[in-house]
Amino acid sequence: MTFEAYLALRLPALLRYALMLTGDPHLAEDVVQETMVRAHLHWRRVQRADLPDRYVKRMVTNTYLGWRRGGWFRRAVPVADVPERESVPDPAESSAVRHELWQRLTALPPRQRAAVVLRFYEDLDDAAIADVLGCSVSTVRSQISRALATLRDGAERGVPLTHRTGDAR
C-alpha cells in the first residue's frame, strides 16, 4: 500500500486514537502530523512490518510519550491566516460522570493513559498493548490496574482534579 493510500484509509482512525491519547484535538493533530511525516521517510520499513498499522500506532504512541511540554507554542508560527478549527466540545453534551472520567484520564501519567486507551478504545489484548508500548505484558497489566484504581478511587472519593503538569517532561 502506498503512503498516500494508507493516509486516505487510516488517517481518521489514527487521529481518533491520538485524540484519546492526548485529550486535545490540536495536540492530536500535531502528534499525528509529526508521526506521519517521519513514517513517510521510513515507509518501506513500515510496509515490511508484520503489522504495519500497529507499527504506525507504536510510532504515534512514542511521539505522544516523548512530546515535550510547550510543544504547541514552540511549533505555532505567529503569522498569517488562522486555519479553521473544530468547535471545542461542550461538556454539557457529555454526561457529568463521563466528563469527569475524561478529565481524570487526562491527569493520568502518559503511559498509564496510553495503556487504558489501547485497552478500552482500541480493544487490544495485553500482548498487543505490550508490543505497542515496548514493555512486558506484566507491565501492561500493572499500568492498567493502577490506572483503573486511580480512576475508580477518584470517582468514589470525589477528589478534585489536579491540573496535569509536566508529565511529558
Binding site: 473544530e86 478500552f120 480512576l151
Partner: peptide, 25 residues
C-alpha cells in the same frame, strides 16, 4: 470499563479533520 468505552465513543466526533491533517502532513 463500560463507562470508559462509552466515553471514548462520545469523544470520537471531536477528532481533528483528516483532510486538513493530510494537507499538513
Amino acid at each position: 470499563d463500560d463507562e470508559l468505552r462509552e466515553m471514548f465513543t462520545e469523544r470520537e466526533p471531536f477528532a481533528p479533520d483528516a483532510d486538513r491533517t493530510t494537507g499538513r502532513i
